[in-house]
Design a protein around this nucleic acid. Sequence first.
DNA 1: GGGCAGGGTTCATATATGTGAAATTATATT
DNA 2: AATATAATTTCACATATATGAACCCTGCCC
Lengths: 254, 254
Amino acid sequence: MPAAEVVKSVARVLEVLELFAQRREPLTGMEVCRTLGYPKSSANAILKSLVTLGYLSLNPENLRYFPSLRVTYLGDWVPDLLLGTVETDEMLEELHRLTGETVTLSMRNEFHMQFIRVLPGSFPISLRVSEGFMAPLFGTAVGAAYLSTLSDADIRGLYERAQKRGALEGQEQNLDAVLADVAAARMDGCARGYERILPDTGAVTAPLKAGAHDQHLVVGVGGLSARIRRSEGKIVRHLKRVIRQHLENSRHAA
Amino acid sequence: MPAAEVVKSVARVLEVLELFAQRREPLTGMEVCRTLGYPKSSANAILKSLVTLGYLSLNPENLRYFPSLRVTYLGDWVPDLLLGTVETDEMLEELHRLTGETVTLSMRNEFHMQFIRVLPGSFPISLRVSEGFMAPLFGTAVGAAYLSTLSDADIRGLYERAQKRGALEGQEQNLDAVLADVAAARMDGCARGYERILPDTGAVTAPLKAGAHDQHLVVGVGGLSARIRRSEGKIVRHLKRVIRQHLENSRHAA
DNA sequence: GGGCAGGGTTCATATATGTGAAATTATATT
DNA sequence: AATATAATTTCACATATATGAACCCTGCCC
């Protein structure tokens, strides 16, 4: 099994739990089966395993499954460590209200920026990107915002490691361009990117230091390139003010 | 693969996430490997899959993994639906303070009562039961408390279905004894059980109606039989008062 | 610079899982 | 009570995964 390939049952466990998180109601085995496109006996094997392990409960009267609180306990501790007292949901909602654009929160994951929260834009033409999406670390606005928190030496080291691992294949950006983006981001704390990996798309992003680790998150506002360019100044001001405000709020809460 | 057997990778996904929930710090692949006793390439395959799917992040500088917020989102919605505004943690902590015994919260899962929260007792001799433990639905105090919320006809139906499914094998209790326990529980809202499936162990339990579904949870206080018998009256009073109080609090919060 | 320790990767093979067709079971309707 | 429909289970076989030995990589220490 080559790198980045995924063990089938691993993916399925998470797909099943994601389905319940999306639907938020008890589901029959057949509903899970049809929705996720699994063969019946495969769906059953996964569901039975999750029940046996206590992650799903089964009501035998109506044959409906539902997650148990053990699913909650797997991850309820993560926000405290990753975010500390920063209320990221409120921050993103405020940015969304102020800009109307797609607002995102991402974190570094190996040589990617992983979108962990996405609030879709209100405009008819809006950036559509899903939670879980992995953008490249090098050559994107979210990546530049993240990298602006590191020294040039650390960025070079990261870039070399990524090259060695073959993680940059298919991505046509060189280190000098990356460092130029980062230098621009350091000037006022915000990174900009237009027409990068997503066509017609622009984004303004800024790092957010949160939580118990020295890893940074990145807040982004993205949408149609022309519209983002027009509003860039306003978006930058909103981004900086909202981040500063919420960091102050989280200091008071800590 | 017979019923109740578990797909290996399914179990491993959850074991890995449980390990992170327990340790609450970044871990290397080898630490996961050693702690969980997996072969190195198997551990790697699971971890790489979780990174690819966005559930773990990997810091390539120190080769340490950590859960992402996607783990949180899988289950952060469950308490609202399952518990509503009942603050179960506070309730259990109060009971724990008042009694010093092992305090548990359980939910029905198929033909079991699954322990979803356990606060271990403060006495040197205390009931030791782990979260995730599946107690039988029939013939236990937690089961009797749960069943007391159903009609006798529904209990009979459930019992028959359990028999048909072979879910009662290894458990020597008949329906009449179960119904007697349930009748006793209905008298004052609390079930008692001594020397049932766990030796030297007694428990007092009560149902807790919470959340958006008509499924009940069960709160229990358990420990050394003799000590639970001695304090039964007090435990019953504490249980009823604390549950009533928290239900009132949750009504005000709703 | 070399050696060592700790970590990860590769690969051939054994074992487990996934699949789909068929059979069985359960429920609802007539 | 019979029938139809929907759901679950079984099973033989195809495919995927797990394993452990061997190898490779990286960083640290002498």
